[in-house]
Design a protein around this nucleic acid. Structure first.
Length: 271
DNA sequence: CCATATACCTGGCAGC
DNA sequence: TGCTGCCAGGTATATG
């Protein structure tokens, strides 16, 4: 479900409320993508220090170790003082002294993994190859361009790969490329410094705006308080196949890249 | 090493 | 109504 904005909005919606809480118990339901990596009851009594985000992962820092959470394609979190009975797709309840963090994930591509530290093998396996954070200062246009020059793959795939820059998923990849005027099928190595600079800015703008209005591009997204910002941000191209481009009115095209849908304007976006 | 395909899993929807 | 096939926000892993 979630790309960087949705994960970040989720984080912001419960980080302050869970910080300082003591874990009462952890209940795991049906298997998620990976096993937890420790006995759930072993976490009882530990303290939640805070919640950080790395790419699309949420990191719950504990006084000893940390929990890595990923929402996969269909996951969402809720944090409530007194949640009702767990439903069919509620696969984790982290009950704490300040409320229960519940993972709802129908497709179960999500994950909850315990790691002793951020540099432990379990953590490095998941976080080790992640690229730079797009909204941080160390995401620089010049570096981005240099890295693009080393990639022969088409630019859309490079963005989705997350080894160069994290957080851009299937929707925001199409949106950012539209904003930058770059055809998704363009090979990364052929993108000029000027265009890479535009793409760099587009990625930041698209993601930052989505965070600002509450991660609302997605149809069924809601934050950990259950608030949704339904479609406040309208997609320029994603899901708009055949509809007129908002800039030039040409029909938006849909293609498949790496088994995923890509949308673009054939006129506004140059190869 | 690089680029691409596959696998994981469930639900919603279009079409018949 | 019920069935079938396709599609969906991600990404580690296998394969060429």
């Amino acid at each position: 479900m979630p790309e960087l904005p949705e994960v970040e909005v989720t984080r912001q919606s419960f980080a302050d409320r869970i910080a300082g809480a003591r874990i009462v118990m952890l209940r795991m339901g049906k298997a998620l993508r990976w096993p937890l990596g420790c006995a759930p009851q072993s976490l009882a009594g530990r303290k939640v220090l805070g919640v950080r985000r790395r790419g699309k992962y949420l990191l719950l820092d504990l006084d000893q170790g940390l929990l890595l959470l990923h929402l996969g394609m269909s996951g969402s979190l809720r944090f409530e003082p007194a949640p009702g009975a767990a439903g069919k797709h509620d696969h984790m309840d982290l009950q704490t002294s300040q409320g229960t963090l519940r993972l709802h994930d129908p497709r179960r591509f999500g994950a909850v993994v315990f790691a002793e530290s951020q540099s432990s093998p379990e953590a490095r396996k998941l976080l080790g190859k992640l690229g730079v954070e797009p909204l941080e200062d160390d995401f620089q246009a010049q570096d981005f361009w240099k890295a693009l020059k080393k990639r022969k793959t088409v630019i859309k795939q490079v963005l989705l790969g997350g080894e160069l820059v994290v957080g851009v998923g299937n929707i925001y990849a199409s949106e950012a490329l539209f904003m930058a005027g770059i055809r998704p099928t363009t090979r990364a190595e052929r993108i000029s410094l000027a265009r890479a600079t535009r793409l760099h800015a587009a990625i930041r703008t698209v993601l930052a705006r989505a965070v600002q209005i509450g991660g609302s591009t997605l149809k069924d997204f809601s934050n950990a308080q259950g608030e949704s910002g339904y479609f406040q941000l309208e997609a320029a191209v994603y899901g708009r196949q055949g509809l007129p481009c908002r800039i030039c009115a040409s029909p938006i095209r849909a293609i498949r890249q790496g088994q995923r849908s890509t949308f673009f304007c054939p006129v506004c976006q140059k190869p």
